[in-house]
Write a protein that binds this DNA or RNA. Structure first.
Lengths: 332, 332
DNA sequence: CTGTTAGCGCATTCAC
DNA sequence: GTGAATGCGCTAACAG
């Protein structure tokens, strides 16, 4: 049995209210008894129990995190960042997986409310409109999503990707997305296309619909592949390497999200990384501000960051270029 | 304001006890009023609030999950499996990251207790002995860890890895671990070594201590690389491919854990996968049994599964072998 | 400055 | 078969 507030009070001959005051630092307590009580608290390692406190104050100190796919390789970095941001303010994180199913998502939200979550961070399923609830919500999706609270600037990330490639002299690009139903991926591709200079050609493939033959594309003159995810960039890279092409000698490859393996492979994968700590911090702050009845903060767009590694290099047969591959990461 | 039990009772002119009885299905309630009440409950979408229930029953319906590194690429599959297993019994999951720090780990455990977790699944930090607590605990580490509740059979996985390679005619192996302080990795390497037949040579490298030149090793006669993680297998594979070697033509590569990218690359990575759903289910069941005051279940060892993909093939210059690479996954 | 009291939402006695 | 009363652990008002 964990010690209760009452136990402390009884052992010291004071009232539970006084002990509670010491814990919260709110009421007025003499320095003397304060010392005495805090001493005792440390001694027996007392911690105020969550449920009792939650019932009384209406705050559980727990935030919900609802995701469409926990097994997404981007999830670890994201969950870690959210957990860290929440920990910093003394909050716990309750997770749920909606498996991309809007019904499961609604159910998950209800369960978080039921469990007493103080607020919910949600990465919505594709095409889902999160109806407003009776507690603070932070939506992380893409800038185009109505009600979006925070997200990486996927469009600008796409621009930077193509600018980087064009800066290296590439004029024939292949843009790789997985699903055009993903608002994040369409934003990235749109950004890529927006950065296209006259004279640069770019072909878009949605892998969900049709898988192109990467080596054949390279054979037809494409010199750079830009994927909306490192996962697909890796698929392209290994396939090209396996077909005997040199990366980045013959062809450059670029991805998004700086997944766990991206720095581990040879050559290292040039990628556009989301600033997870900042996104997470913004999402949590978004929630806490709402809890304090502050006005709803404006949506935030967090810039993406280009991590130049070894997988991108000068386009072959481009006399203007003489850049060399750098050692390690170079950030822009 | 969410509807309360009292609201329902008042609107229907019954007592809160009756409503509660309907919810739990425990007390005796006439079929008539039961219909009436459950109708009302559905109508206004009432859900019993967690904190109140937790306070009264001592059960929160929430399980804690404490991990040494949320950003580990194995985490998504693991978290998803735990979440699914917990959901199946109506439980929520509270996550915490100990960042490999024993002090943070203890702190995380205390916070879960404080928050009212009914039990905790923990993957301990290296070398940490989890002291027994006042609530159910399930430890997932390696069979050698005292108090271990469930884990994959890493040793057997290691055996299978080497047996698979030897079966393909490989006689010069390179075994790759990251850290010898990891009990999981040492178990896998030990299993690999235990399966060595006379005449097979295997060199072990711990990448944390010294990074070998993979291509040079292959040049000296090694024909197969077995890593304790797909991440390091991928490092080896891309480096070998980049050096112009053919996988699996010249050299085979094998990993562990079937990470997200393993099936996506070319060639697909042959790997030993943990049965996450079963491990997760066992861990959760371990907790629930303890909650029911059942005797502590015996530790469980879950077998690992060999997923044969394209990265392993017959050893070169081995006339006895004539196996061909299979299409897709072949499980053993 | 400190103690007493009441009640957060719910499940469980025990009378009726 | 149903309702009134009680208390889980805690904090916020209010008395003292």
């Amino acid at each position: 049995m964990q010690p209760k507030l009452k136990d402390i009070a009884k052992q010291l001959g004071v009232s539970t209210a006084t002990v509670s005051n010491v814990l919260s630092g709110k009421g007025r307590v003499s320095e003397e008894t304060r010392k005495l009580i805090s001493e005792k608290i440390r001694e027996i390692g007392y911690r105020p129990g969550g449920p009792g406190r939650a019932l009384r104050t209406g705050r559980s100190g727990v935030l919900g995190l609802v995701l469409p796919d926990i097994s997404n390789p981007l999830f670890p970095a994201f969950a870690q960042a959210i957990e860290a941001a929440a920990s910093r303010t003394g909050h716990g994180i309750l997770i749920a997986d909606s498996h991309g199913d809007p019904i499961a998502q609604t159910e998950a939200l209800q369960r978080m409310i039921q469990r007493g979550a103080d607020g919910i961070v949600i990465v919505p399923c594709r095409g889902t409109q999160v109806s407003s609830l009776s507690l603070p919500i932070a939506i992380i999706d893409s800038a185009a999503t109505p009600g979006n609270s925070v997200c990486a600037d996927h469009f600008q990330g796409g621009r930077m990707a193509v600018e980087h490639l064009q800066g290296l002299g590439h004029k024939r690009l292949v843009l790789l997305g997985h699903s055009r139903r993903s608002s994040v991926q369409t934003a990235r591709i749109a950004g890529m296309e927006a950065a296209l200079e006259p004279g640069t050609r770019a072909d878009v493939f949605w892998l969900e619909e049709a898988a192109p033959d990467f080596a054949a594309l390279a054979g037809e003159g494409a010199t750079a592949f830009a994927a909306t995810s490192d996962l697909h960039a890796l698929t392209a890279l290994t396939r090209l390497q396996g077909a005997g092409m040199s990366v980045p000698g013959d062809v450059s490859v670029l991805g998004f999200d700086d997944l766990s393996f991206s720095a581990q492979i040879t050559p290292g994968l040039t990628t556009l990384a989301q600033n997870m700590p900042e996104i997470a911090a913004a999402a949590v702050q978004h929630l806490l501000l709402q809890l304090d009845e502050a006005p709803l903060p404006a949506p935030r767009l967090i810039p993406m960051k280009l991590l130049v590694r070894g997988s991108t290099g000068p386009a072959p047969n481009d006399p203007k270029q003489n850049k060399t591959t750098q050692q390690g990461d170079v950030t822009t």
